[in-house]
Simulated assay, not measured.
Amino acid sequence: MGKDDKEDSGFGFKDKAKAEETLRLLEEHDMNYRRLTVRGLLGRAKRVLSLTKAEDKRKNITEAMAVFEAWLADLDKNKEKKTDKKEGKEKESKEKESKERESKKEKENGDKDSESDVEMEDPAKEAKKKAPETVPGLGFKDKAAAESTLEELKGRDPDYQQLAIRGLVGRAKRVLTCTRDETKISNIKEALSIFDKFMDDFDTMHLGKQNNPYVSLGIVRTVLSKAEDVTDQQKAFIAAYSSVGGEYKRLRTVQEKEDGKTWDIVRNAALKELKEKHADAKLFNEKDEPTKEHIEMLLWAYSPEAARVKKLIPETKDEKDKKEENDRKRRSSGRDDESPSKRKKE
């Protein structure tokens, strides 16, 4: 197969069966990666179709394209439903907030420190504690900015690198349509040429296959509780993963204390060594338990068989998470008991 069919990665569009297999393989990746990959395959399929004269091959590719187009259409349809649902919830939330404001006006000043007021402030306080997930310092104003961007992305998750560059390319092209300054246009085009080369190399070198999807924090905690040999660096990583509540994207801005690198970069470097070291290692024993080699990778929130791990290893929540979850349920129950509709019924 040619480069366009991506046979090496298991993704392709040579016929309907290959397209359906591709969608199954993509299920283990996040939605952004799946959508971008399907759109990329569609684009390649169209190019191949324009160069192909064999009717049987054209028919097969057309059927594969129909599978991808149907998948994207369903994705858009679900997105619209979610948007409508979200808008409905936002409307309901605004009405509820309006009623609460009116109710507060009737209260005396002594109620300012009431439990409901504290609850309304909590989400904002919690949000401030969270690390941002967007890497700073990315840009496209000129060649230097583009080179600095690639340097900033080096060592990070390949999926994120690709998404970040595609986002910058899109923004740069929109800016070009609104700019008349010839110098600015020239500078942005130089930046775009650097990004285009990066994207070409990304596909040619199959960098997407080097991505290390994260295993959930709950599973990592379970593995940690049974692991015998855990390095200080692994313990520090798990502590950082816990500090962001298992939201791996936020590790892009959380730094390791040793050398100042962010934990996503540190993790990828550690996993590169382990994947090479344990390339032929057995991952599970006869009891369906992860082997020592497998545990080394799991402590970095990674497994070559993530789906199987999810089925075999239960998640563990720490006491803080359990307490916060119980507190949320209790507060939610309290708000329901004090809701105007319930008081009216009583």
Rank of each mutant, 00 (worst) to 15 (best):
A279Q: 07
W263K: 03
G2P: 15
I194L: 09
D4E: 13
G10A: 14
S333H: 06
A281N: 00
R44T: 01
K275P: 01
E27C: 13
M297T: 09
K173T: 08
K141N: 07
E97H: 12
L36Q: 11
A227K: 09
E228K: 15
R331W: 09
R34K: 14
F13I: 07
K287D: 10
K282I: 00
F237C: 06
K197D: 02
I188S: 10
G40S: 08
R58A: 11
K81G: 02
E87P: 03
K125Q: 06
A191G: 01
S50M: 13
N285E: 11
C178P: 00
W71K: 07
E133W: 05
N187Q: 07
E95H: 05
V118L: 14
V244N: 14
D117T: 15
D76V: 12
K57G: 13
E20Q: 15
N212G: 02
P304D: 04
A70F: 10
F68G: 00
T231Y: 11
P304I: 01
T291F: 10
R58W: 08
D280T: 11
L251E: 04
S116I: 06
A270P: 03
K197L: 08
P314L: 08
E108M: 09
R343S: 00
E319P: 03
K86C: 09
E256Q: 11
G137Q: 12
R221A: 04
R331V: 02
A306C: 04
A146W: 15
K59R: 15
L207M: 05
Y160T: 05
V230D: 03
K105V: 15
E7S: 14
L51P: 00
A301W: 11
R39L: 13
A236H: 11
E190Q: 13
L192H: 10
M205D: 11
S186H: 15
M31K: 13
D122R: 14
Y160C: 10
K6G: 04
E69H: 11
M205V: 05
I238E: 11
L163G: 13
E28A: 14
H206F: 12
E324T: 03
L312W: 06
A307Y: 10
I165M: 10
G334S: 07
L168E: 09
I265R: 13
K16I: 04
I265N: 06
M65V: 04
K105E: 15
K226V: 03
E80N: 05
K89Y: 07
F198P: 15
G2W: 10
K141Q: 07
D318R: 13
I219A: 06
I265L: 09
G40P: 02
P340A: 02
D76C: 12
T222Q: 13
R335L: 08
K18S: 13
L72H: 10
K209G: 09
M205A: 09
E152Y: 12
D157I: 09
K287Q: 12
K345S: 04
L207G: 04
S339P: 03
G10D: 10
E286I: 05
F195Y: 15
K292E: 13
R34T: 06
E121Q: 12
K94Y: 01
A236Q: 06
R44W: 04
D337R: 07
R221Y: 04
F237L: 12
K189L: 14
F68K: 03
